[in-house]
């Protein structure tokens, strides 16, 4: 193994690790705000990547139908709720806007010549398609059971994931998809060739993390989300409704997922069911961070990326085994740090 290979593998590890770090961040955000372990996080990634790939290869984009259908169901659920309360509950704002966005995106995917609108427009349209999926999933599947036991939330989360993977097969077919890189340039730094895609991933990750930092530190809504995570009752008493916090965190999760998908699509071939494996590595990062510490989770995710890259080189067929077995020492460490018996909520 020479320096060049080390640099190459390291590069792979950094790009993948950066994406895992983003996903870890998103998973922890949703978990701390809603207590839901967002297993379908990976579907945002896979759906985004496959939608981009479908656009570029000139195949029909079907995701709009799913989003539109969910928006219709969500609107009906809202209507039923208002009707049942005999007009005492106001019409919840938000869902109608999502319905409009979903309808518009659906129409656009059907009328635009998708393979000729350019990568930037393709990415924008993908974002418009996938991001509404976040709040819609929350509205349709989780809002009514938001107060349930966390085990119930986990099972519903897995069930939604299973249903989405099946839908993904229906929409995208069993073939994998890969997109054009954002640019083809390579930079030579010392003995190493740095692919510009790597730099794109790193830059986009840093920009997104910076954006999230500003959002949580400086904006009222960001602080409101943080407040919900810190003290649910306190947040509700100052008027931050759990529904709002849930929808907002799912929106962010979908946004992070779609960006990860667009970033990773030129590097790896993505299949309709690849999302889970990718997001699971985010979960491993999140568990390293104890589901609470963002920086530790991000470092953990970077480490997972490296471990994966180097095990590809040494024992490529055991790659996934090695990556997921790495979780065991983390759990051992957590278990040793944990001494007293506790009651679950």
């Amino acid at each position: 193994m020479n320096m060049q290979i080390v640099m190459l593998l390291g590069q792979d590890g950094v790009t993948n690790g950066a994406v895992y770090a983003l996903l870890a961040l998103s998973i922890m955000l949703v978990f701390s705000v809603t207590r839901i372990l967002l297993i379908p996080q990976g579907e945002f990634v896979a759906f985004a990547a496959l939608t981009m790939a479908a656009m570029q290869s000139g195949r029909a984009v079907q995701l709009g139908w799913l989003v539109f259908a969910l928006a219709v169901v969500a609107t009906l659920m809202d209507a039923a709720k208002v009707w049942r309360s005999k007009g005492r509950e106001p019409w919840p704002h938000g869902t109608l806007g999502l319905l409009a966005v979903a309808a518009l995106a659906l129409v656009l995917t059907k009328v635009l010549p998708l393979d000729r609108i350019g990568m930037f427009a393709q990415a924008l349209l993908t974002i418009a398609l996938v991001v509404p999926l976040g709040p819609l999933l929350y509205r349709v599947f989780f809002q009514a059971i938001a107060a349930a036991h966390s085990l119930v939330l986990l099972i519903v989360s897995i069930a939604v994931h299973v249903a989405l993977v099946g839908t993904g097969l229906l929409m995208f077919g069993p073939e994998g998809g890969k997109t054009e890189p954002f640019s083809d340039a390579f930079f030579e730094i010392g003995p190493a060739m740095i692919a510009s895609q790597t730099l794109w991933v790193i830059a986009a990750t840093l920009a997104l993390m910076g954006g999230l930092w500003v959002f949580f530190g400086k904006t009222l809504y960001g602080r409101a989300l943080q407040a919900t995570a810190v003290n649910r009752l306190g947040a509700e008493l100052v008027g931050i409704s759990p529904d709002l916090a849930g929808r907002a965190s799912f929106t962010l999760a979908a946004a992070i997922g779609v960006l990860s998908g667009i970033l990773i699509a030129p590097i790896t071939t993505i299949y309709y069911d690849s999302g889970f494996i990718i997001s699971l590595k985010g979960f491993v990062g999140a568990i390293i961070g104890g589901l609470t510490s963002f920086p530790v989770a991000a470092l953990g995710a970077l480490f997972i990326g490296q471990a994966e890259a180097f095990s590809t080189f040494w024992a490529s067929s055991y790659k996934e085994v090695i990556v997921f077995t790495l979780l065991l020492p983390v759990l051992v460490w957590r278990s040793l740090a944990h001494t007293r018996v506790e009651d679950e909520e």
Binding site: F141, A144, I145, A148, V152, I155, V156, A159, V160, H161, V162, A163, L164, V165, G166, T167, L169, L170, G173, P174
Partner: peptide, 19 residues
């Protein structure tokens, strides 16, 4: 088309069951 589409039904069924 051929595929594990029954998973969609099972997923939704479990959501309903849990609720």
């Amino acid at each position: 088309r051929v595929g594990n589409f029954e998973q969609i039904v099972f997923g939704l069924l479990i959501v309903v069951v849990m609720r």
